[in-house]
Design a protein around this nucleic acid. Structure first.
Lengths: 226, 226
DNA sequence: GCGTCAAGGATTATCGATAATCCTGCCGTA
DNA sequence: TACGGCAGGATTATCGATAATCCTTGACGC
């Protein structure tokens, strides 16, 4: 998915090109574990399975690789990227820094019109009642993406997207025992802080939230002030 | 360029795939203005001009679109996106935040073995004598990428790559009058700070450096402490 | 035993051609 | 005039097949 559309487009219209539908298919397969991390995926295999040619599959592969979900080696093969605890931990300070910037930039916009973010929160809380950790992970990713999107800064969104939060969140949720309703409610504070327009509080809350995402993290690894 | 390869491959070895060479070609054409912002680019035109088929061109288009350099509409056409000062300025706080994290993480590693970073600096200073602003821009990007790479954090590198620093730097260098040798020397302080292992000084210097990159910026938009 | 090299298999990379889609301009109608 | 619809052109999207590259395996010489 291009950074501009941000990964939320294809479900709306049927304008979807074949490539984007293949992409979504792979996304789901990776998300629910049918394509396990580390397992190889072959362009022509997927093409045959979906009844398309190699071309759209190839395009989908490239996009997912850009998101860090797939790992491709030229002329050799592609596999689902392994995201170990080390990778997960590694991403935390990066994510914290980016979402801190996002909070700083988003606060004024959200304060002016909090409706989109509130809708994302409502959806998250609704999904939390479904006892489906996979669906919850996706909703959670969408919520955070909405925060970043609220900053109205394409560069920021692109960088954040490149982290591959989808897979990180899924991993975290599946190796986690936290009740979903509690996890969901933990996001309310973010919306409130942003909607109030209080930049410093927003940044602090987001930092704490992201840092808490990885079990074992004791405090925000990067504290952003300014 | 895929996030994994990091955009630094194609100029070194001839491992470059056709798609990546087309990408680089287009990058240069856009940078030096032969492909003016707003002008349409046709896949088959470029393909014929470069003597390839449509496929690699298409791939290059997708990558450049992901970086915000091209604007594609399905079944209609692609044009060079207008990258105004606003876009350039937008990226600054994001880049500053990422490179601050990079400095924090890289300092210990660089202190232990500064050779790679020093080599990048030497190369930058060497290229500065060539009076080729395009080459300098590339060397400069390489230097900063080396700083980020020194952090030894894949997530960080992916996010940074997603910003498309190449084009930002090229744009800046081409609309800039600063003498190249002065610009190059401005990077020495970064290496020294990192090599000394002084994290706080490293972060401060990197922040100042990045913020100064955009003419008109008065102070680091985000100050990272911790 | 160990390094070197060649052949073969696996996978992606590229090609040339065709299909699908979208836009524009024209025509007919009221 | 304003409006709807329908050819025709332009461009991308997709296809099926072939080429190029890389890795592995095993033979061979030392």
């Amino acid at each position: 998915m291009s950074a501009a559309e941000g990964g939320a487009d294809s479900s709306l219209l049927d304008r979807a090109t074949l490539g984007s539908r293949v992409r979504d298919y792979l996304l789901v397969e990776i998300a629910n574990g049918r394509l396990a991390p580390g397992s190889p995926v072959r362009e022509l295999d997927i093409a045959k399975r979906l009844g398309t040619s190699q071309t759209p599959v190839r395009e989908a592969f490239r996009e997912l690789a850009a998101f860090g979900l797939l790992e491709a080696r030229s002329h050799v093969g592609t596999r689902v990227r392994e995201v170990g605890e080390r990778e997960l931990a590694e991403a935390v300070p990066v994510r914290a820094a980016l979402e801190a910037v996002a909070a700083r930039l988003a606060a004024p916009h959200v304060a002016e019109d909090p409706s989109r973010l509130e809708a994302a929160l409502d959806e998250l809380i609704r999904v939390a009642t479904l006892d489906d950790r996979l669906a919850y992970a996706n909703a959670c990713t969408q919520f955070h993406r909405e925060v970043v999107r609220s900053a109205q800064n394409d560069s920021l969104l692109r960088a954040w997207n490149a982290l591959g939060i989808e897979i990180m969140t899924i991993m975290t949720m599946l190796t986690n025992e936290e009740p979903l309703d509690v996890a969901a409610e933990g996001h309310r504070g973010i919306v409130e802080a942003l909607a109030s327009g209080d930049v410093e509080r927003s940044v602090a809350i987001v930092n704490a939230h992201v840092a808490a995402y990885i079990p074992g993290a004791t405090e925000p690894p990067v504290h952003v002030t300014g």
